[in-house]
Amino acid sequence: MKALVVSDSHGLTKELDMIVKRHMTEVDFMLHCGDSELESTSSELSPFLGVKGNCDFGSDLPNDVISDLGELSFLMAHGHLYDVKSTLMRLNYRAAELGVNLVFFGHSHIAGAELINDILFINPGSIRLPVMRRQKTYAMISVEKREVTVTFYEVNGEVVEELSKTVTL
């Protein structure tokens, strides 16, 4: 099972379309972790299951989504309601409460994947305004049984090797 994950596109449309076209035949679904700053009915967001970010004013998207990715379950939230710029503790508590294996979030614009208490937290970064690195990033998640491979990409499609990893949950 594979999912494409983006976040914090902040009004970009051409780049979202390009990423969707690049990966549409290789993924089972696409996730947007918020701050698209687009109408939830926009054609650019139509391929995505999305959540509302702090810059998505008036959006009718949900704050959180809980679903499955293969044999694993996930929580997707933008992160602003969980103070992710300061700590992942509140988001970790929520994930543990729900019993999920994966958490997808944005808000901080910092790309990375971190295992905390047997839960894999994945922030795809930002395709518009990255923080702590120059690359504008998104991620591809591949789940095979309980093995999760997270591959980070630059907007141009190049793999960011130093961020990518495989974890068994």
Results as ranks from 00 to 15, higher is better:
1 M>R: 09
157 G>Q: 06
161 E>N: 08
25 T>D: 00
34 G>H: 09
85 K>Q: 00
47 P>R: 09
61 L>G: 03
94 R>Q: 05
63 N>C: 09
33 C>D: 12
37 E>C: 11
24 M>L: 08
36 S>P: 14
92 N>T: 15
127 I>E: 06
167 V>P: 00
144 E>D: 06
130 P>I: 01
159 V>M: 13
63 N>S: 06
1 M>Y: 11
38 L>A: 09
60 D>S: 08
22 R>K: 05
96 A>F: 15
8 D>W: 13
139 A>H: 00
97 E>M: 13
64 D>V: 14
66 I>M: 15
164 S>N: 02
72 L>N: 08
40 S>W: 02
157 G>M: 13
147 E>P: 06
145 K>V: 13
116 I>D: 11
134 R>H: 04
168 T>R: 13
99 G>R: 09
49 L>Y: 14
90 R>V: 04
97 E>V: 11
150 V>C: 00
117 N>G: 11
121 F>I: 10
79 G>W: 01
160 V>A: 10
37 E>I: 05
9 S>Q: 15
129 L>N: 15
86 S>D: 06
7 S>I: 08
83 D>L: 03
134 R>V: 10
3 A>C: 05
106 G>S: 09
20 V>F: 01
61 L>A: 09
82 Y>L: 14
84 V>F: 07
30 M>S: 05
60 D>I: 01
1 M>F: 10
140 M>R: 05
104 F>S: 13
147 E>C: 05
17 D>H: 08
106 G>K: 11
107 H>I: 10
71 E>S: 15
110 I>Y: 14
65 V>N: 12
80 H>V: 08
80 H>T: 06
158 E>L: 13
62 P>C: 10
124 P>R: 08
139 A>W: 00
131 V>Y: 06
25 T>E: 00
157 G>R: 07
29 F>T: 01
19 I>S: 04
126 S>V: 07
87 T>N: 13
135 Q>G: 07
